[in-house]
């Protein structure tokens, strides 16, 4: 087959996908950078402002507090989802009766959408007739305001995020646990290691690549929190749950600050990349070999 003919066949196969992905990913990503140098609301004349949108960010208290809220959520959500994911996977990794049912129960919330999870959160955590407060009252404790309390709203959102996403970390850990070679564990047992020692010195090191992966994955998700905020608190009460992406969405699609919105999006993208790369480099350095 000649080179031209080969190229034609090849591009027939990869052309459509390449075109769509370049047109709907790479091109807009480049355009977003151009937009981030403009002051533009989509209607009026666009004005080139250089890096002004970026310098403006350093002096934007609303963005600062959105970053803090996002950080707070991340700290609540990421370590818990990784540790609980591991713990639940260890508990589920055995052959006992009904184990299939237990696994299904843990996985099934994963398929619920963020919109449904949000509406459900409003219902379960309703201060007056919510299920959670009815349990709390029955335990003889004072009912809580939950999503209506600026000090509790983000914690409730983190709890419901965990409910909806733990199935994922559990599945990943469970698969990794079952990939650990039996010989490794048996050899350690023969050498006289007890179960705790086997866990700390054999099982856990084998799981480290998965831990690095799930941490990065959950971290990226946490930094992009939007849907659950939109369907529960819309950033309130008193802006206590306004995250970076929620603020970005408001700036771009409520205030029509396309330029400033793009700049915020770029900084978020850069921050995510830096954190991800740092974690990958650290795992390389620590000889974890996750990537």
């Amino acid at each position: 087959m000649g080179g031209a003919r080969r190229a034609a066949t090849g591009w027939l196969f990869v052309g459509p996908s390449t075109l769509v992905i370049l047109g709907l990913s790479l091109f807009p990503a480049g355009w977003a950078f151009y937009l981030s140098q403009l002051k533009w609301n989509g209607f009026s004349e666009a004005r080139a402002v250089g890096f002004q949108n970026y310098t403006r960010m350093t002096d934007d208290p609303e963005l600062g507090s959105a970053a803090l809220h996002t950080l707070f959520f991340t700290v609540l959500y990421v370590p818990t989802s990784v540790l609980l994911g591991l713990g639940i996977a260890l508990a589920l990794n055995r052959r006992i009766r009904f184990i299939g049912l237990y696994r299904t129960a843990v996985f099934v919330p994963f398929v619920a959408s963020a919109a449904a999870t949000g509406i459900l959160s409003n219902y379960l955590f309703d201060p007056q007739f919510g299920f959670v407060n009815s349990v709390i009252r029955r335990l003889g404790l004072p009912p809580q305001r939950f999503l209506e309390d600026p000090n509790q709203a983000m914690t409730v959102i983190a709890l419901m995020s965990l409910w909806a996403s733990l199935g994922f970390t559990v599945v990943v850990y469970l698969a990794a646990l079952q990939d650990i070679p039996r010989d490794l564990v048996e050899a350690a047992m023969i050498d006289g290691a007890n179960r705790r020692q086997v866990f700390w010195h054999v099982v856990l090191p084998q799981l480290t690549p998965v831990t690095v992966f799930t941490t990065i994955w959950q971290l990226i998700g946490a930094l992009q929190l939007f849907d659950l905020v939109y369907t529960t608190t819309r950033g309130g009460p008193v802006e206590s749950t306004k995250t970076i992406v929620y603020y970005l969405w408001e700036q771009a699609f409520k205030q029509l600050n396309f330029g400033y919105g793009s700049a915020v999006a770029y900084v978020l993208f850069a921050a995510t990349m830096v954190i991800t790369l740092a974690m990958i480099l650290y795992s390389r350095f620590a000889k974890v070999q996750a990537f």
């Binding site: 977003a32 771009a252 793009s262 999006a265």
Partner: peptide, 11 residues
């Protein structure tokens, strides 16, 4: 690696 948030506005 490109997140949706970066693409929303230009798209």
């Amino acid at each position: 690696m490109i997140p949706t948030q970066l693409l929303m506005i230009p798209t």
